[in-house]
Design a protein around this nucleic acid. Structure first.
Ligand SMILES: [Mn+2]
Ligand SMILES: [Mn+2]
Ligand SMILES: [Mn+2]
Ligand SMILES: [Mn+2]
Lengths: 222, 222
DNA sequence: GATATTATTTAGGTAAACCTAAATAATATG
DNA sequence: CATATTATTTAGGTTTACCTAAATAATATC
């Protein structure tokens, strides 16, 4: 099965939107892929012909088993590449997404396997997103947004949106990397900044940025 | 300047053919790129419009300064990638060409620079081909074919054709890597095999394979 | 030097992945 | 519930990079 770069990107976007908003509609897909809605309609019909998605006009799109398999393969490429570029090659974590976006379509299955091996079969990328296994299993931690946390709650950074380079630089400077534990010591009103404590060091993060950060709560009785 | 993958491959092929046979004609370009001659005519006209080549119908194509610059940039990507894949990632030397053929169009200039740095600014790829510098300088050693050597002559392996995986596996098993010194101890008649001596070890290589191997003669008075 | 062969170009088409503008369907509002 | 707004689709183009078939130019052969 030789699929075009565009097709791979559509399937990936459908997978992501499904995860993020539940339903996948034309306009949102168009916005994410930076094409016009009319183009999405055309492509989605084609994907339906290829049995990669199911599609009912005005109702939305959903991946079939086959479509999901392709999406997960591309996502696996993407996240393995991000981790390799960051960890082994030393590229900053705000640069790797863009690079991986192109490379994900270019690497062979053999190179994918080699990268996986060199990284020791990792399960998360530099931004905390799970790397699907070769077989297509994904660890989907049910995490919540940092922005929704209350004063006094403790949590661990799970995942940071990886598309926005500026956000990543900001968050990186604050030291908010996946895996870091912290406590919310203050939440300013009027959508104001949050103050966090990481190992007795206080840091302040804007509420907008906090919306882009997913965390796993640490239960009080731990 | 954003050039398509096809355009980059045309320019690279024109560069290579110029080097190999001196003149670049439609049919050969078509054969190398695995497209029909009519398609080459079309693309070459387009490249001429873009001032990347000069073209006279029925006469042949030649790269302009701008065209050569692009060709050398793509070749630099290709060869740096081959070396990285082989040396750092441990891919066998008969696999790296195919992989680099796709990746060369996908990596950013920043990643190119990082690879160059991690490799210590290398000057040749795993098959012995020179890596053009960032500025576009290429070391073109004037080497001859192994197949044309006579009994008793000494030389060093310079370069092995990199497109044919089977050839590379064969040559690799014989230990004929770029840099290896040897002496021709016998040349069988009727286009028969050649016997070489590398550090007192004798190896036999077919004449067809020997045509694909370039060497630098070691002068007798050395 | 006429004729056959080979190389190349021209003309007209196709497929993929976009686009714009207009039509239609779904949803929201007074 | 009639009308306005928004979402989506349809229809008809465009661009890129191919293709085939036919025409033409260059070269080789008798
Ligand atoms: Mn992509
Ligand atoms: Mn990521
Ligand atoms: Mn190569
Ligand atoms: Mn290529």
């Amino acid at each position: 099965m030789i699929l075009s770069e565009s097709i791979e990107d559509y399937l990936k976007a459908i997978y992501a939107l499904k995860k993020e908003v539940g339903k996948v509609v034309t306009t949102q897909l168009a916005e994410r892929l930076e094409v016009k809605p009319a183009s999405v309609t055309g492509m989605v019909r084609k994907l339906a012909d290829m049995k990669l998605v199911t599609y009912k006009p005005y109702q939305g799109v959903a991946l079939t088993k086959a479509g999901q398999k392709v999406a997960l393969e591309v996502i696996r490429h993407h996240r393995l590449l991000e981790l390799y570029l960051n960890e082994i090659m030393g590229l900053p974590w705000d640069k790797v997404h863009q690079e991986a976006e192109k490379l994900e379509h270019a690497i062979s299955e053999e190179l994918e396997d080699r990268i996986d091996q060199l990284l020791g079969h990792p399960t998360t990328d530099p931004h905390g997103s799970p790397i699907p296994s070769k077989a297509g299993k994904v660890n989907n931690s049910s995490s919540k947004k940092l922005s929704e946390m209350k004063r006094g709650e403790k949590a661990k950074i799970a995942e940071v949106r990886d598309e926005d380079s500026e956000l990543l630089r900001y968050v990186g400077e604050l030291g908010l990397f996946p895996g870091k534990s912290f406590e919310v010591v203050n939440v300013a009103p009027y959508k104001g900044p949050m103050t966090l404590k990481i190992k007795s060091k206080k840091i302040i993060v804007g509420r907008e940025a906090a919306k882009q950060i997913l965390v796993n709560k640490i239960s009080a009785w731990n």
